[in-house]
Design a protein around this nucleic acid. Structure first.
Lengths: 231, 231
DNA sequence: AGCAAAGGGTAAAGATTGAGTAAATTTACT
DNA sequence: AGTAAATTTACTCAATCTTTACCCTTTGCT
């Protein structure tokens, strides 16, 4: 696994320094913010693997940041606090934190908890990616990278396969062009990039001979949806 | 969400009883095992959403169970222990536990931690899509960008969809033209801009064939309201 | 009531944007 | 080098968004 990107939000610069050194030596890449506002800004603009969030901060405190991020942020959050207060812990977890560690903490335990969270994320995001998907006569098997339509094989290129896979994983849910570009082509979507359109076009063509009904619906200005079609 | 299935592995029957009662009252479905071997057996044969695992048990202890389950079990594990020993916690987390709570614990905190883990799993397996909105026979699904009126599809353009979405989210609440312009068209409202009026007009027209009653009410000089209509 | 002014409804025209795709080019792999 | 795949180019066309224009309704004033 490539170095996980962590975001540390803590007003204690000295402690941050120490922690930064420790975690960097453990192979993480760490960004530090010393107040809630810049921390929140960072969290919203950059995609981190995990956020370490101190509760006690002047201005925007940890709970405020948690609230501002909303309940469904994708990035896991580990809260740090000087208080050992239990109701505090409960509140943090209810607001959307994933774990809670009281200061002063053992760096080893912090490390272990960070790893535990990242491992869970890793397991869960890889799990779905290996199970075959069957929808409406189309079967896609990630393990063998084969796709069949009504049991007959459909020969897709690697990118076409991944694109179809991502769409089928998100059945009846829009997958934006940005998402397709980032997840499949591994680069941000650029203006006037017609590459995705091309691949979609090719996928559609390869399926045409088997079935006339269009499974991949275009959502103009947004992306594409793989439709289950049972309406 | 349907009731999460939990597995409790703890040799302390009395405590298990209490915990079982508490968690059941919180809407979980709980299975108890009183030793490591049966616990391991259960964990392997049935698909639980979360395992609560006591460390101190005669025979196979919590760590042994953890090891036996292997590093990449899909089910998250929360360990419970009488010891507050840090190295113990670190060991547990390294062996694949997702969280660690020392006895005696506050039931509220346990509950919060259980929920935090389940929420993380939920987010990562992305079952938490943006929820469809249903009002008065009209259903709007943000995920697939589809709108139906009395189960029949209504074909809206992107802007029309977003405008209706914003109005339906603010049921019975006025949405100003300024708001509509900024949120949907991404620009400040200008004098003599009739664009919003046009879109509203088009939305109304597309719904006319299904129902005569007007859902979108005009508030002269201010904006529009989507009416729940039950008065 | 009468009137003027402002705001909204909407058809139609015009402008703009985004998608489809053939073909050419580049890239990546053998 | 040879080949398959991916990307870019270039062009068309269709969807859809905006503007215009005209009419109707409401509001507020005398």
């Amino acid at each position: 696994m490539t170095a996980a990107k962590l975001l540390l939000i803590d007003d204690d610069q000295e402690l941050s320094e120490l922690l930064s050194e420790f975690l960097t030596s453990e192979g993480f890449s760490l960004t530090c913010c010393f107040d809630g506002i810049t921390g929140l800004e960072q969290a919203k603009t950059t995609d981190y693997d995990l956020i370490l969030l101190d509760v006690m901060m002047p201005g925007l405190n940890g709970f405020d940041v948690l609230k501002a991020l909303g309940g469904k942020h994708l990035t896991p959050i580990l809260m740090l606090t000087a208080k050992g207060d239990e109701s505090d812990r409960v509140l943090g977890l209810e607001l959307g934190a994933d774990d809670y560690l009281a200061k002063p903490y053992n760096p080893k335990e912090l490390l272990a908890r960070i790893k535990a969270i990242l491992r869970r994320v890793d397991i869960l995001t890889n799990k779905t990616k290996s199970q075959p998907i069957q929808i409406n006569g189309i079967e896609l098997s990630p393990a063998s990278r084969e796709v069949t339509c009504l049991t007959k094989p459909v020969l897709l290129t690697g990118t076409e396969f991944e694109m179809l896979h991502l769409l089928m994983e998100n059945l009846d849910t829009i997958v934006s062009k940005e998402m397709l570009s980032e997840q499949v082509l591994n680069r941000p979507l650029m203006a006037f990039d017609r590459s995705i359109d091309m691949h979609i076009s090719n996928i559609r063509r390869k399926f045409q001979q088997f079935s006339s009904e269009e499974k991949i619906k275009t959502i103009r200005g947004v992306g594409y949806v793989f439709m289950s079609g049972d309406k």
